[in-house]
Design a protein around this nucleic acid. Sequence first.
DNA 1: TTTAAATTTGTAATTAATACAAAAATGAGG
DNA 2: CCTCATTTTTGTATTAATTACAAATTTAAA
Lengths: 142, 142
Amino acid sequence: MRKEKTISLYLEKFGIRPSVQRIAIAEYLMKHRTHPTADEIFAALSSQIPTLSKTTVYNTLKLFAESGVATMLVIDEKNIRFDGETKPHAHLKCKKCGKIMDVMGCRLPRYRRKDFCVLETQVFFLGFCEECMSSINHNINN
Amino acid sequence: MRKEKTISLYLEKFGIRPSVQRIAIAEYLMKHRTHPTADEIFAALSSQIPTLSKTTVYNTLKLFAESGVATMLVIDEKNIRFDGETKPHAHLKCKKCGKIMDVMGCRLPRYRRKDFCVLETQVFFLGFCEECMSSINHNINN
DNA sequence: TTTAAATTTGTAATTAATACAAAAATGAGG
DNA sequence: CCTCATTTTTGTATTAATTACAAATTTAAA
């Protein structure tokens, strides 16, 4: 496939040797903008790659995060999530259903100080999504 | 002690009945601006309250977070941290030593959209603190 | 084809957090 | 001062995400 070739080249740009597993995980991250957990990625890919191991998924995601292919999102108290979009952007998180959404059009704050070297800025807006908001209203009326 | 009285009244304002354990945990959070984990709080208080149980610490911190006495900080991939300062403010986190520091003088971004109700905004600046930066420089020179 | 290095896999271990039920403390009424 | 219901605390057992580690497999180069 042409797509695999593209992802291979992309990974190589970050100094990562492409493998079937790494390509599949990278492709999953790019196609699904759901900020998946390692477990979700494992579940989604294990039919496609039956021998896939959960450890490989963990190792690969760690490698991706360290080399800049993906971002590690520490936003959910249960699991670590991963984001294939590496351009800086903010996130929305629903406090009820846990859904995480991208916010591309919001300028991130800047901060400088001499005794700290800022490399990355993360902005999370926590609240209620539309569906959960209406279900809360419904409950109040009962 | 007078301090306990003050903390009692503070907890009651949030609808929380004061108990020896709750007062001690609230006091710890106010005195120590280190964004401690449940385990750190447990370790620090168990000499003062020998019968203290880790479950109580977890329960109390959850109660505090739900009622607004403290903020739950999901910033570290290992543990949840808690912050007794509830005024909105940003945080710095060192990627090397894991230290978390407050940033009081940085305006948080605002974001509105009709299909989401923002209740809370979290801003994290990740990077290297002064000590870790100099240790990295030192390693490069070796 | 051989061999070393890199990658993947599976299992076991670790550990933060939660569930749950018993024990203890608290507070109101009598 | 008792009694009883409610709240809070405690300890143990469980859950589940992540990591450690070593064996197996794959890859790439000589």
